[in-house]
């Protein structure tokens, strides 16, 4: 247990530090790298909770795919970040004020937090307990049975996003020569090579 709590605090502190560094790093590429580090710490916390499937998916999806694209974009952007920072200073008072109001609201609300009388009963776990089956299986059972409607609809959302990306960016350019692999493969020697008998001094 001691080790577990030490590890927990190490991961949590590192996560917070990484989070702070994401927004305070001067170089945007460094920001993205800190973000990746933050994802790792979060994955570590998931493992600590016994949610190893989520931890791995977090690393695969966010670190392995999403953050790569972030990095890709950020590296190629040519933005004057000094300019952007000037804006931060200008909007800091009003932004800070809004943040302060939200925080005080949160505090007021949490201090007076009363869950409904039957709330705990509603929370009842709808699956076999996680200590009996692996959490990959437990998640699968939930997603593909109880929540399959949401799962499918989320799929529709992603489909729409994909169509949208294509609609807004794909341009068919004129005059581009494309490789036609079947045509290349279908080419036969007889079609393109002719063996001719060339008479002496005659030419073709």
């Amino acid at each position: 247990m001691v080790i577990q709590s030490i590890v927990f605090y190490v991961f949590s502190c590192a996560l917070l530090i990484c989070g702070v560094m994401v927004i305070s790093a001067r170089n945007p590429v460094h920001s993205v790298l800190w973000l990746i580090a933050a994802f790792f710490q979060a994955a570590g916390l998931f493992v600590l909770m016994g949610a190893e499937f989520l931890a791995m998916i977090l690393v695969i999806v966010y670190v392995g795919a999403v953050a790569v694209l972030f990095l890709f974009v950020v590296m190629m952007l040519d933005i004057n970040f000094v300019e952007l920072r000037r804006g931060v200073v200008r909007y800091l008072p009003i932004g800070g004020l809004i943040g302060l109001v939200l925080v005080s609201e949160l505090v007021a609300m949490v201090s007076g937090w009363v869950p409904a009388a039957g709330a705990l009963a509603q929370l009842g776990a709808p699956v076999p307990p996680v200590d009996q089956i692996s959490n990959t299986r437990a998640l699968g059972q939930l997603i593909y049975t109880q929540y399959f409607y949401l799962f499918q609809t989320a799929g529709m959302i992603l489909l729409v996003a994909m169509i949208g990306a294509i609609v807004l960016t794909l341009r068919s350019r004129e005059g581009v020569r494309r490789q036609n692999v079947p045509a290349q493969l279908a080419r036969r020697r007889e079609d393109v090579v002719a063996v001719r008998k060339v008479p002496t001094r005659g030419g073709v």
Partner: peptide, 25 residues
Amino acid sequence: DINVGVLYLYAISSLGVYGIVMAGW
């Protein structure tokens, strides 16, 4: 001998790109 060994390998192999991109940048 973890339960999600395949995912672990997949995750690690998907991280390989970072070394190269970071080196390039």
